[in-house]
Simulated scan of single mutants.
Amino acid sequence: MQQIITGVLTAIVTPFDTQGELSISALKQQVKRQMKYDNGIFCNGTNGEFFVLNTQEKLAVTQACIDEAAGKVPVVAHIGEISTAETIKLGKQVAALGANAVSVITPYFVPFKQEELIYHYQKIADALTVPVFMYNIPARTGNTIQPETAKILSSHPNIVGIKDSAGSYESLRGYLDVVSDIEGFDVLNGPDSLIHQGFVDGCSACISGLANVAPEAVSHIWKYYQSGDIEKSKRAQDIVSELRKELYAVAFSPAAVKKAVNLLGENVGESRYPIIFSDSDIQEIKRIIAKFSL
């Protein structure tokens, strides 16, 4: 089976105007900015603040990304809701817009058994025609998709892979180990610190939040790796890893990313959730931007 996506997908920020309302024009500008470096789009994810978007906004974000991408780069939309039924409902609406695939976090707030997660994902995949990626982010949901669970779910013809954002190499390696011999099931790397190693070990793509800040640097990791220049890919990774370390020390990573994008002169507005940046925080982000010549 052909891979659904390869390379870099940017976990794109959701821009808001001065009134805190969705700015479609600014979003399309960010998609265009990413396409300059051949980066695909992952919308309505953590960096896209899906948790403070209503359903109509999620659909508008997806539509804008698909329209601007115009088939030149893939668009994957996150659709994870707390219930199976609401996830299916949103998934059908997103599929109708023409997304290349959807991504689904585990349900959150309530702790689930692995067999319950299997039921959840099977019901979603049964109901949708668009390809489904599972999305493991236990720090935010409280639920972990175990590697053996991913292997069981890989047998479903419409579950095409898993995005791992647990944040550790051990977690990523666990998925790669159990699905390495399964054709048509892809592992997508979430942590920006593991992009290069993920490609080396068999990930088909990465979903990068930092690509909002440094789209060229992140794209270099993939392009150099793909061309066989492993040393240059490693050096690009070192730059991205250092940027990640410094920027994420300032604030919760999606908020720090959005603030950095604004300070780069890209008007994407403020985060909707209550994040406060002190004057010293702003100066620190400006220092980081200058240091990495962003």
Rank of each mutant, 00 (worst) to 15 (best):
L263V: 12
T129C: 08
S171T: 04
I195H: 00
K36V: 15
G269M: 04
L22A: 08
R33T: 12
S171P: 02
I4G: 07
V257K: 05
A125D: 07
E86T: 14
Q2K: 15
T46C: 10
K223G: 04
L9C: 04
V178Q: 02
S241E: 06
Q226K: 14
S154D: 09
Y248I: 06
V13L: 11
A290F: 09
K245V: 00
S227D: 09
A211S: 15
G45H: 09
T14P: 06
G80L: 10
G190Q: 00
P111E: 05
S168T: 15
L97D: 05
V213E: 03
K258E: 04
C43H: 02
T149Y: 07
F42L: 08
E115G: 05
T6P: 00
L97W: 10
Q34K: 03
P157K: 01
R272A: 03
D238G: 00
I66K: 07
D281Y: 06
A249Q: 12
L263H: 02
K245R: 13
V52C: 15
L153P: 00
Q114F: 02
E81A: 11
A139R: 10
P107C: 05
G161D: 02
V132P: 07
F50W: 12
Q30L: 08
G80T: 07
G20C: 03
G190V: 01
